[in-house]
Amino acid sequence: MKKDEEMRTALITGAGRREGLGFEIARQLGAEGFHVILSARRLEQVEPLAAELVAQGVKASALKVDLLDHASLAAAAQQVEAQFGTLDVLVNNAAMMVGSPNVADKDMDELLLEFQTNVVGTWSVTQQFLPLIVAGGNGRIVNVSSGSGAFWDPDYGLVNYPGFEMERFGAPISAYALTKTAVNGLTIKMAKELKSDNILVNAVCPGVTATRPGSEEWGARPVADGAKGVVWAATLPDDGPTGLFFRDGKQLPW
């Protein structure tokens, strides 16, 4: 990372919920000494969360980042450049899942929104902040993905699905899972293209985490546990892996 460890910066998208994965990733990276930039579509979502971390002694700030608004992304990148000059870590955490997962009755506008947010949005925010990451000299990009988007994940993968407790509900493969298949492919693409810039790019599945009330009842684990694997990938040494897929620091099959 940077020679001046005190100036390490990390931007986390989708960090607008106190109970969410993004906030916990920010908290853990802040504990590692990063200045964490919590971002969400609305600034009022992240300002109190950033203030909460600051009160805990973490260097933190809030930023408006709307993955579907190119002007918002450009303005956000300009703001980070003006304040910090470079960016060390980008965690692409923002994603959405809406509506029915069934082929027969899936609303196509909802499907388009999911792909625009989860796939195009991930690409767009990376594109806007890439010059700052390159300028940092040895950046890290972590794409928060899902084993449900892999073909051969033994627990959640497309071929093995359903392979966990929710199978009793008869849930079909979701459109969200297919967006994560695309994110996994995008991760490989980014890793290959950015290797010469000393940027490590990996996908991380946080597992099923308890970000919603009642989710613990069907086996969701604490958010802090899911966040650890993301933080691990965000703080890899310079000779660490790139273009791979992990959960809890262990490589997963694509």
Rank of each mutant, 00 (worst) to 15 (best):
V125N: 08
Q45A: 12
A94I: 12
K64M: 14
K59W: 05
V80K: 04
E110Q: 15
Y156E: 11
F115P: 01
M7T: 13
W254H: 06
L194N: 09
V36G: 03
T179G: 09
F84A: 08
F84D: 02
A75S: 15
M7E: 14
T242S: 13
L11M: 10
D238A: 13
P213V: 13
E217S: 13
L113K: 15
V142Q: 01
Q56F: 05
M108P: 01
G30Q: 08
A233P: 04
A10F: 10
T211I: 14
I12F: 05
V80L: 14
A26D: 10
A40R: 06
V208N: 13
L113Y: 05
A177C: 03
S148Y: 01
S215A: 15
L244I: 00
P172W: 06
D105G: 05
M97F: 14
V183T: 02
L38T: 09
V142F: 02
G214P: 05
T187N: 04
S72H: 09
L53D: 06
G185A: 09
A40P: 06
R18E: 15
G22N: 09
S146W: 01
G219V: 06
T9Y: 03
A31G: 14
I188T: 02
N118T: 07
A26C: 11
A77R: 11
D238T: 09
G22Q: 08
N92V: 07
K192G: 04
I25P: 02
F115C: 07
T235C: 12
T13I: 03
E193W: 08
P172F: 08
S196C: 00
A77W: 06
D105H: 04
E24S: 08
K195Y: 04
A50C: 03
L49D: 05
G137S: 07
H35R: 11
G147E: 00
I141V: 12
P206D: 02
W123P: 04
F115W: 10
G226A: 11
R17E: 12
S72A: 06
S215Q: 14
E81Q: 14
A135Q: 12
M108D: 08
M96Y: 04
M190F: 13
V223S: 08
A171F: 15
L194F: 10
N160I: 01
S124F: 10
A74G: 07
P172V: 03
V144K: 01
L87Y: 09
V183P: 01
A40N: 08
K195Q: 10
G57P: 11
K189M: 07
V89Y: 07
V65S: 00
R42D: 11
N143I: 06
V120M: 12
Q116G: 09
G14L: 03
Q56R: 14
R140P: 03
